[in-house]
Write a protein that binds this DNA or RNA. Structure first.
Length: 991
RNA sequence: GCCGAAGUGGCGGAAUGGCAGACGCGGCGGUCUCAAAAACCGUUGGGCUAAUCACCCGUGUGGGUUCGAAUCCCACCUUCGGCACCA
């Protein structure tokens, strides 16, 4: 009997040997093809790794080992995304330096990664909280600050080039949006330094703007969104969170929005991630539109839906809008003044975060503007739901297709005219009790309309195109004082004497007059106000979707996106507006009022100017201090450290350092480049090495990073590309997301409960405990085998022993085939069959690794092992096919089970190391089947199976099928309508 | 609310237009053993049945496309992930 498989001893032995030999050290660029396989940058927490994290690290390790055996130069590094809130909070709590905590946590992660046999090149380990790393985060910040985005060249350029252009031409050639105030060359030259700084802020890719933070009034600190409960109270203090506006740093990612969207076409990523990024960026073709006031002023609005312009029935100005005074008619002056004053008073009281939507308020100015597309006079209102800081501070209101405008129009009785067809074309018509003839229901049924009846009231469902036919059918059967309408699509008001299309403000008035008379009421502000009050119509009166325009003159009937383009062209031809792409994505807020982050290399001088820290002064390091407690002012703890904050500039001026630090997304936006040349003191990374190794070939991590991290990293990569620092513009060629591993399912009161692993639930399973009981190879195998790679799945404690049993079987079949035989009957298995299985398995395993099907890769290896047992019982041990099969099994198992593979390799007399061997090459001829099973179906049901030569053609299959007794009996007397033959698969006889 | 996914035996899953349930866990029966464990062999979706013959049903629910649907389309239900200061 061979020695028992003892993972604890042999795993430790080989891990020490591999480390001593630097087996996984990656050299510089060479002649070989490269493969860069990277895990998402982990944040080392005090809790260490769970088996859930290993779902990421094991598969990438399998891939790295596989590509090494394929002859690639493989880069497989690991480092630590170490700045951030959890460590800082822990530091405050335990009064320990966060750098010390980080090193402790990272060392533990590294120990665990070694424990599971991960083949990282630790000589390239990086930590983003170390000065030699964040030096280059700061370096990139300085370049962002010093560049602007030129839309004409579609790339970043030095800000000095913008200054030169401004001095010569002003903004005339830059193509500013209409909303941006232009500046002439003379005006620019007349600007003082502060005015220039303010102006350039609008262009810089890193700039200081204003943003609202969550303010905890008890702890007197800025807190993260996740530290605010759903009730708007701070987790720690329980205080009601307030909002506070601070000056903060942003990166102008919006400048790159178009390229970030466009270049998604060049990457191999899961489709859902691409879609999520596209939705996040949210490109839409909007327009700036000029409305003329009665006084002849231009009233500029921005709209994301130019296709709805014909439905703009009023305008709304923010209370602070500069034109409020001039458009207000004398009669309304007092009302407007008092509303504006009230709105301003209210704004001073910062509303709580996510306050429930309050009732709309507003006041009519008495003034009108002209809708540029149809010349309609539309009233101008003032309301506080329009914000001066957003867009132009004025909107065109399209109440039929914008929810806020809809609510506002209903409240103030303004007309609402639908101008976009519902995509589903659904419509309802309500026939009220006593308004129609008794014969009508039968007629409707006969005509094919479906309707429901309730207490004599009929609700008919139809579609827009049926509206006029429906009107013609119903009208003669309405009682003299009755009426009905088609609502949702088709839009008609049907009276006994006339049918009115609901297509304009005039029609709205006409319909209202009719209904007023019939209902004998005095006031009915709009047809829509009447419809909304009718429960049957509640869900169909309003929609905000894209669709085909109606009641919109020249764009009627055009598909949505074309309608937008046509409208923009219409406006531009007549000088009434300008197309402008609009993005949902907002600029990236980078400031954190925290200690534990990368310092921002900016100095604020006494005269109010921002000064860059010189490259030679980098890195600006964090001061070592005792206390990381936040200040009471909202500034970061750094602000209290006077000897760090105060700086004297070489020119004699004095200044204060920026005390905000960068959020950690900055660190993780370029780390994949630092791994390529991690110790370079002179530059971010050597350009030749970058050119060889980038982009990352395979990037693997959780789908929770689908949007932000990936978008930010892509943004920085494109920026560095524009600078000429990189020869590529997409950082991650292929991306895969592993599914979450949940805690083992448990049964409570008959209910199966599955939860996330978490410390608070005390249900974390660590790799340490699994390795201790079953070994790293069994853990690795089960991580692969547990489920499809991308699927979330609960851990099953019985799964690891199953994989362990497989490893035991591999151990015994390789080392002790001759000694052991099954007691069962003599098996029949040929050498040729074994050979075929060997080569089929090579193909399967290889394809599965390439396609991230690690679960079926393990299944293939298990089937191979089962086949070897059958072959042994058939007496094949010792044959050439047997020797080839065993060698192949060890090589194919090496990526997933590196320790046992290395041990067996050594014990079977092969040279160290199996991980430096070439991957076996499959022979397609040896793998080919000679005979295949073909299914015979009658009417799609399997009735028999035939074994035929693999190369049997369609005609042979058809003949065999028609001659088959079972097929004949199922056909019986019926005649054959069709015979479908799929070579190599089946014959289906249709009767 | 908005955006994005996923629903298949007792359990994890395989099959992505062509034999549903590969592989493993668990269960059942057996071999070995004084016995147990381990290991090995066999069996294991449901119904009907003397039967492991045959037949019928079966991939969240309802409809559709097709000679043929777990797979494609529509609607619904349920569950999960993200939503910009956790990373």
């Amino acid at each position: 009997m061979p020695e028992r498989y003892d993972p604890a001893t042999l795993e430790q032995k080989w891990q020490e040997r591999w480390a001593a030999d630097n087996l996984y050290r990656t050299g510089p660029a060479d002649h070989r093809p490269k493969y860069y396989v990277l895990d998402f940058y982990p944040y080392p927490s005090g809790e260490g790794l769970s088996v859930g994290h290993c779902r990421n690290y094991v598969p990438t390790d399998v891939v790295a080992r596989f590509y090494r055996m394929q002859g690639y130069n493989v880069l497989h590094p690991m480092g630590w995304d170490a700045f951030g809130l959890p460590t800082e909070n822990q530091a405050i709590k335990t009064k320990t330096n966060p750098a010390v905590l980080t090193r402790r946590y990272a060392a533990n992660y590294k120990r665990q990664m070694d424990l599971i046999g991960a083949s990282y090149d630790w000589s390239r380990e990086i930590t983003s909280s170390e000065p030699d790393y964040y030096h280059w985060t700061q370096w990139i910040f300085l370049r962002l600050y010093d560049h602007w985005y030129d839309p004409r060249l579609d790339q970043a350029r030095p800000i000095s080039e913008l200054e030169a252009e401004l001095a010569e031409h002003g903004t005339a050639r830059i193509g500013l949006p209409l909303t941006e105030r232009p500046v002439s060359a003379a005006a620019w030259l007349a600007f003082g330094p502060l005015a220039r700084q303010e102006f350039l802020k609008r262009f810089r890719l890193a700039y200081r703007g204003e943003a609202t933070v969550n303010w905890d009034p008890v702890d007197k600190t800025v807190i993260a969104n996740e530290e605010v409960g759903p009730d708007g109270k701070a987790w720690r203090s329980g205080a009601l969170v307030e909002r506070k506006v601070l000056k903060q740093w942003f990166f102008r990612i919006t400048a790159y929005a178009d390229r970030l969207d466009r270049d998604l076409a060049t990457v191999d990523w899961p489709a859902r991630i691409v879609t999520m990024q596209r939705n996040w960026i949210g490109t839409s073709s909007g327009a700036e539109v000029i409305f003329k006031t009665e006084q002849g002023d231009d009233l500029l609005v921005f709209t994301t839906r130019p296709d709805t312009l014909w439905g703009a029935t009023f305008m709304v100005l923010a209370p602070e809008h500069p034109l409020v005074a001039s458009v207000t008619a004398a009669a309304q002056r007092e009302a407007v003044a008092s509303y504006v004053a009230q709105a301003q008073a209210q704004r001073a009281l910062a509303p709580a975060a996510d306050a429930p939507e309050k009732e709309k308020t507003g006041v009519f100015t008495g003034g009108y503007a002209v809708n540029p597309v149809n010349g309609a006079q539309i009233p101008i209102w003032v309301a506080d739901y329009v914000l001066m800081g957003y867009g132009t501070g004025a909107i065109m209101a399209v109440p039929a297709h914008d929810e806020r405008d809809f609510a506002f129009a209903l409240k103030f009785g303004l007309p609402i005219i639908p101008v976009i067809e519902r995509p589903d074309q659904a419509a309802y018509s309500l026939l009220r009790v006593g308004t129609y003839a008794a014969t009508l229901p039968a007629l409707l049924r006969e005509a094919g309309y479906s309707f429901t009846e309730s207490e004599g009231q009929l609700t008919v469902s139809l579609t827009g195109p049926q509206a006029s036919a429906y009107a013609a059918l119903v009208q003669p059967h309405l009682s003299a004082d009755g009426w009905t309408e088609v609502v949702g699509s088709g839009w008609l008001a049907i009276f006994p004497d006339t049918t009115v299309a609901f297509d304009s403000v005039a029609a709205d008035q006409q319909i209202c007059d009719h209904i007023r008379t019939a209902l004998q009421v005095d006031a009915l502000p709009s047809f829509m106000a009447y419809l909304v009050a009718e429960p049957a119509y509640r869900d169909i009166v309003f929609h905000a979707e894209m669709g085909t325009p109606i009641h919109s003159g020249p764009i009627d009937g055009l598909p949505g996106t074309e309608a937008v383009a046509r409208t923009v062209a219409f406006l531009e031809e007549r000088g009434l507006g300008k197309g402008r792409k609009n993005y949902k994505v907002r600029d990236w807020l980078i400031s954190r009022q925290r200690y534990w982050g990368t310092p921002i290399p900016i100095i604020h001088t006494e005269d109010g100017l921002e000064t860059l820290v010189a490259d030679a002064e980098l890195p600006i390091t964090l001061p070592g201090v005792e206390s990381y407690e936040p200040t009471a002012t909202g500034e970061s703890p750094l602000a209290k450290i006077e000897d760090w904050v105060q700086v004297a500039l070489p020119d004699g001026r004095s200044g204060r350092r920026e005390t905000d630090t960068m959020g950690t997304f900055a660190c993780s936006s370029w780390y994949f480049m630092r791994f390529i040349d991690p110790r370079n003191p002179n530059m971010l990374a050597n350009p030749e090495e970058l050119a060889y190794w980038m982009p990352v070939d395979m990037y693997v991590g959780g789908a929770e990073h689908a949007v932000m991290h990936l978008l930010y990293a892509r943004f920085w990569t494109k920026f560095l590309y524009d600078l000429g620092a990189l020869p590529f513009f997409e950082p991650f060629q292929s991306l895969r997301n592993q599914g979450l591993i949940l805690a083992p399912a448990k049964e409570v009161d008959g209910q199966i409960i599955v939860e996330k692993m978490s410390k608070s639930k005390n249900n974390i399973i660590t790799p340490d405990e699994v390795v201790a009981s079953h070994g790293a190879d069994a853990l690795r195998g089960y991580e692969c085998f547990i489920s499809d790679f991308e699927t979330a799945v609960p851990w099953n404690v019985d799964g690891v022993p199953g994989v362990r049993r497989w490893l035991e079987r591999v151990w015994r079949i390789v080392l002790g085939a001759e000694q052991e035989r099954s007691q069962g009957a003599e098996a029949s298995y040929s050498e040729r069959q074994l050979q075929r299985l060997t080569h089929q398995t090579i193909i399967r395993v290889e394809n599965d690794i390439r396609n991230f099907k690690f679960n079926t890769m393990i299944a293939a290896l298990m089937e191979f092992t089962n086949g070897l047992y059958r072959a042994r019982d058939a007496g094949l041990a010792g044959t050439p096919a047997w020797a080839e099969a065993l060698k192949t099994l060890m090589l194919l198992a090496a990526p997933v089970a590196p320790h046992i593979a290395e041990e067996l390799w050594a014990r079977t007399g092969h040279g160290y190391s199996i991980h430096q061997q070439a991957w076996p090459v499959a022979d397609a001829n040896l793998a080919a089947e000679e005979e295949i099973e073909v299914v015979l179906q009658v009417n799609g049901k399997v009735r028999d199976k035939l074994t035929v030569p693999a190369d049997a053609d369609e005609e042979q299959l058809r003949t065999l099928a028609m001659a088959n007794e079972r097929v004949k009996s199922f056909i019986g007397e019926r005649s054959i309508r069709k015979v479908i033959v799929v070579s190599g698969k089946l014959v289906n006889v249709v009767v």
